[in-house]
Design a protein around this nucleic acid. Sequence first.
DNA 1: TTGATAACGGGAATCATTGTCAATAAGCCG
DNA 2: CGGCTTATTGACAATGATTCCCGTTATCAA
Lengths: 127, 127
Amino acid sequence: MSAPTKRNTRQRRAIIDFLKTRKEFISAKELYSEMEDSKVGLSTIYRALSDLVNDGDLDVFIDNDGESRFRLCGSHHHHHLLCRKCGKSVEFQAPEAEALAERLGASEGFSEMEHRLEIIGTCRECV
Amino acid sequence: MSAPTKRNTRQRRAIIDFLKTRKEFISAKELYSEMEDSKVGLSTIYRALSDLVNDGDLDVFIDNDGESRFRLCGSHHHHHLLCRKCGKSVEFQAPEAEALAERLGASEGFSEMEHRLEIIGTCRECV
DNA sequence: TTGATAACGGGAATCATTGTCAATAAGCCG
DNA sequence: CGGCTTATTGACAATGATTCCCGTTATCAA
Ligand SMILES: [Zn+2]
Ligand SMILES: [Zn+2]
Ligand SMILES: [Zn+2]
Ligand SMILES: [Zn+2]
C-alpha cells in the first residue's frame, strides 16, 4: 500500500489481506470477528483502519447507526468543485458519495453502480 | 410542518422556532445549550430531532467526530437513480450530499453552493 | 372538566471508539 | 546471527453521543 511510515507487522498484513478479499464495506467489529483466527486485537484493528484511512488506502462512511464502515480504495476516481464565474476547479474525493451510491442503488435493486457528482459555487475571488 | 402524528407541545414549538432562526447545521448538544432558557430536556431534543428527521423536515449528517448535525430542510430538491439499460429512474433525497456540498465547498472557500448528483446502475429487470 | 395517553426529563444504560501502559516484536547495527 | 531501540500490540479502562427507562406532566378529544 502507500504508507512508508508504518512497520510491517503480522497484524497489519492480516488486516490488509483480509480487506483485499472483501469488496463490500465492513465495520471494525465485524472485521474483528471475521478475523478471529488471525488473533488481532480490536484496538489494533481500529488503529490500522485509522492509519489506512489517513494514507488514503481506505474509503470510509458512517452508517445510520453511527458505525464507521471501511473498504479498500479502488481507483483514482474523483469529483469536481468548480466556480460558476471563473471556472476554477478543485478535485476532491468523497467516500460518502461512493458509499451513498452503493447503498442507494442496492436498496432499489440496482447493481453495478456508477455516479456523477459535482459541486458548483462561487470562489473566494469571485464573490 | 408536515407531521400530523405528533402533539403540539411547548418544547417542540421551541425547538422548531429555534431551528428556524438558524441556517447552519447544529448538533443536539449545541441546541440544548443554546436553548437553555427554554428549559427543554436533552432527551426531548433528541426525540424531537429524530421525529423531525423522520417526517422529512430536517436534513442530517454525521460529522467527523461521529456527532449528528441538523438543519431545517429547504426545498424539494432531489436526485435521480437511473438504469443504464432501460432508463427507468427513481427519485431520491440525499441529505449527505447536501451536507457534503456545503462542507466541501466551504472548506475550499466557495459560497452559494449548488450541486448535481446522479447514480447510474443496472436495475433488477435488466441484469 | 376529565380521562386516556402522548410527551417530558433526569438519570442510567449502551456501545462504538479512543486512551493507557506494560509486554512484545520490527528493524537496524555490528 | 544476537542485542538495542522504539514502534506496535492488546487487555482493559475511559469517553461521549445517543437511547432507554419510568414516574410525572401536559395535551386534547369528548
Ligand atoms: Zn471563481
Ligand atoms: Zn465518486
Ligand atoms: Zn433497467
Ligand atoms: Zn442534493
